[in-house]
Design a protein around this nucleic acid. Sequence first.
DNA 1: GAGTTTTGATGTCAGCACACATCGGTGTCA
DNA 2: TGACACCGATGTGTGCTGACATCAAAACTC
Lengths: 262, 262
Amino acid sequence: MVPVTLDPPRRRLRATMLTSMSTSLHHRAVEHLGTRIVGGALPTGHVMLAEHLEDELNVSRSVVREAVRVLQSLGLVETIKRVGIRVLPAHRWNPFDPLVIRWRLAGEGRGAQLRSLAELRSAVEPVAAELAAGNAPESLRQELVGISLAMKEAGDAGDMPRFLDLDIRFHALVLSGSGNEMFANLIGQVTETLTGRTVHGLMPEHPQKQALQWHMDVAHAIDAGDGALARDAAAKIMRQTIAELSPSWDDQPRVFVPVSKN
Amino acid sequence: MVPVTLDPPRRRLRATMLTSMSTSLHHRAVEHLGTRIVGGALPTGHVMLAEHLEDELNVSRSVVREAVRVLQSLGLVETIKRVGIRVLPAHRWNPFDPLVIRWRLAGEGRGAQLRSLAELRSAVEPVAAELAAGNAPESLRQELVGISLAMKEAGDAGDMPRFLDLDIRFHALVLSGSGNEMFANLIGQVTETLTGRTVHGLMPEHPQKQALQWHMDVAHAIDAGDGALARDAAAKIMRQTIAELSPSWDDQPRVFVPVSKN
DNA sequence: GAGTTTTGATGTCAGCACACATCGGTGTCA
DNA sequence: TGACACCGATGTGTGCTGACATCAAAACTC
């Protein structure tokens, strides 16, 4: 439909795009370019022309420019006068941005991304538990104890869906209870790894008895205000988690970003 | 309609803007809005109109729109049809974005931001040292040993500027040597806290003898591939660092982000 | 009160003027 | 003749603007 004007100056036929509509053009453009860059379809150094992107995405210049500006702020591309839009090397990307993380998890960088997140968790959660023991509000401590008990119950009963829910909430509460905004911001990523682990069948059928105990240890230590104990118990959980997951990324090469001489 | 002339529809006089020019309008707009939001001048929930921003910044719609899109991707604002551009609460901001961090350090959130960064460092650096012991390339290990020795030299000699440079490079190498992209990405923030500590006179005149030894311990442990030793030595450095700095943020209230019920 | 219309803001488009790197041609000098 | 500096043409990002589309809040009608 909309054949109103035969072969208009631009042969772009926006009206015939029957898909989408759910999300804005801007959102789609960011998503399209982001996934292709992070996924590796557009290699480092690849140069695109804004006009070319207009045609490719069937959108106008404003949409392309706003999308490019966002990708620029994520460190995915840079714009150079008289040259075009250039894809930046991966070490320039902001590895903490939720969009970048999501795109990496969806593409070929999935293994390396999961490893990075797991290592970050293993670093942060023990410290978060320690801080929570010192700072968390009373209600949070009590909920934590309650959840750890419910986790044991669900674990012993083999109710894995319920266990997963509780597990997610447990770790979210620890991160939140630290009172550190950066730690709390990792809740989303942690949730992602926990669900991913279950979805991809990397979880044992029953949670380890030890792990259940460690979760209770963390909760009770936080409740009692014992930071060192909370930290050590959380560290044990993390060590076991890494041990469970590491086979899935053993083949991923590590990247060592050069440190500038200044 | 729209009486064409009559009292210039826009009294914007862009041409008279004799200042700036060094940076793009887009950059300035992002910076202006970002600092005012993060700095607290524009409170949570505050609603702006795009047109109003055009007048305020003396720029066109494209510049405002592109800037707003970037701020949106940082979680600082949301745009709502028929309402305007609304400032989001702080817990929606991306606390890992370099722009957000810089704006917080420049504004009233400085103390809380420094604490967050220090706690993040204290969590990450020991794990990074442990990973570096297992993964870092040979050349990096050797440079690390050399730097730790030079640090001791500069420290004993009381050459603080040189010590600061070496200190920064030392911690950057540890983070880089971990082979974890997220850790490596924290180099900039760590550098910021290290220089800030010196600039604000929070450093002792001579580095602690212990700290010098710990740095050497970390370097030698990484060089020898002893992860546990590297981790523990790095943890000691971090404990001392936190102890030195914590007085400067003791009065900052902690914020506990609520955890959604799902 | 429920449904409908109006209104006002963002979303999107396309054309223009400008700034400015890059490239290639031209001129000068050795 | 060859090397080098200059300079203008070209193309592309940057910025501005008017017009229209879209959509949700608010006002209105019944």
